[in-house]
């Protein structure tokens, strides 16, 4: 069965940080997704010129046809500045999905290894779908999020992540900023390294279900460090952009 292009209306936009914006669509014929999947968006200019791009879904499956993405504005990008600067509530766009069946996490899947999510920059987006999904389901294993951004102002979903962590004793969230030395900061202020993983994860287990998403260099670094820490490569799923 072909994954059809559908017309979806933007029902809400949320400016998340200076460079990122969430678009929430109403997709009438949405077929439920798994946390971690993405959609393709197709734009058409008046003369028929078309472009397509992929964007990770940030909403949990439980939100049904209210499908959300979070777009990072790429300065010289062709598509992202249109989505972040021009599109507003009421706009209609073409999309198709859900797409991708590997970088996905289901709350009811067995065995229930602890979840380890590692995000670099806007790599948090598909992982946020997993955390929102996890929050809405009964779970019997822990989760750790290590989220690296350039500066505190670039951390997407900061308040929501703090709230989720506060109300859920089995979720640990660690923020990392690489280009700022904020005062009164509980998180790390350097690039991810082995010592950081040792401090955050402890010595109890290396048997995690790992999802890493971010730039290629970030994902390469994180995946190498985790293997050095002792995590088996078979347990590491990666998604790289740019």
């Amino acid at each position: 069965m072909k994954l059809k292009w559908q017309i979806a209306e933007v029902t809400e936009t949320i400016q998340e940080t200076a460079q990122t914006k969430s678009l929430i669509f109403d997709v009438p014929e949405w077929q439920e997704h798994f946390a971690g999947q993405h959609i393709d968006i197709r734009l058409t200019a008046e003369d028929g010129y078309q472009v397509e791009r992929s964007y990770s879904i940030s909403s949990p499956p439980e939100n049904g046809q209210k499908v959300a993405i979070t777009v990072e504005r790429v300065e010289d990008g062709e598509v992202s500045p249109y989505l972040t600067d021009i599109v507003e509530k009421g706009y209609k766009l073409e999309l198709r999905g859900p797409i991708g069946g590997y970088f996905v996490w289901k709350a009811n899947q067995t065995p229930t290894k602890p979840l380890l999510l590692i995000a670099g920059g806007s790599g948090i987006v598909p992982l946020m779908s997993m955390l929102r999904h996890r929050n809405l389901n009964p779970i019997n294993s822990g989760a750790v999020l290590i989220y690296s951004a350039k500066a505190t102002a670039d951390i997407i979903y900061y308040d929501e992540l703090n709230e989720l962590t506060k109300k859920d004793g089995t979720l640990k969230t660690v923020f990392v900023v690489t280009r700022e030395q904020p005062v009164n900061w509980q998180g790390y202020t350097r690039r991810i390294d082995l010592q950081m993983f040792e401090e955050v994860l402890g010595k109890m287990t290396t048997d995690y279900n790992v999802f890493i998403c971010g730039s290629t260099s970030f994902v390469e670094a994180a995946a190498d460090l985790l293997q050095e820490f002792g995590v088996s490569p078979q347990n590491i799923k990666t998604e790289r952009f740019g």
Binding site: W5, L43, T44, E46, Q50, Y91, K92
Partner: peptide, 15 residues
């Protein structure tokens, strides 16, 4: 390929 709705305000940047 020619199907699809016009994306309001999208001009694109043909190389």
């Amino acid at each position: 390929m020619t199907d699809g709705i016009i994306s309001k305000g999208f001009t694109g940047r043909r190389r």
